[in-house]
């Protein structure tokens, strides 16, 4: 008779047991802020479609200190999302080859940051230019 009795360890609380996993779960948690912010934009969209009074009420709601507090936290979460997204993108994109050589991950990540900065500034200038 076999005396084997392989022991399988439980997975409870696994994400707290390694700093790498904590960072992973933080990355996943940024999606809560992303989702709520998209819903706030959706509310703005609906109010825009309802007319000027509704839209101005939405703008007014955005000046509430609770709202500003949420957006500060959401900004931090969005920046963390951006950093982690750009870091893993080279692992997801098909391998790029230039003149028979693999384009290094760092080059891909850096290019994304450059594009992001241009888009951020472009967006801000577009809104600024009244």
């Amino acid at each position: 008779m076999s005396k084997r009795r392989p022991y399988v360890r439980p997975m409870d609380g696994w994400w707290l047991k390694n700093p790498y996993y904590v960072r992973y779960m933080s990355r996943e948690a940024t999606s809560l802020f992303v989702g709520v912010y998209a819903l706030i934009l959706l509310a703005g969209m609906v109010s825009l479609a309802c007319g000027e009074t509704a839209y101005n009420n939405w703008l007014m709601a955005m000046t509430n200190p609770v709202s500003i507090g949420f957006h500060l936290a959401a900004l931090a979460a969005a920046i963390y999302h951006t950093i982690t997204w750009f870091a893993v993108a080279p692992k997801v994109m098909p391998a790029l080859f230039l003149a028979g050589k693999r384009v290094p991950d760092i080059a891909i990540t850096t290019t994304q940051y450059a594009i992001a900065v241009v888009l951020y500034l472009g967006l801000f200038c577009m809104v600024w230019r009244v």
Binding site: V34, Y37, I40, L41, G44, L59, M62, T63, S67, I68, F70, H71, L72, A74, L75, A78, I79, H81, T82, W85, F86, Q112, I115, A116, L119, Y120, L123, F124, V127
Partner: peptide, 18 residues
């Protein structure tokens, strides 16, 4: 989210209200 959201959040939720 990576290429637009940080600036969009700043514009609608922070820069405009403040």
């Amino acid at each position: 989210a990576a290429f637009l959201l940080p600036m969009l959040i700043f514009i609608t939720g922070i820069a405009l209200p403040l």
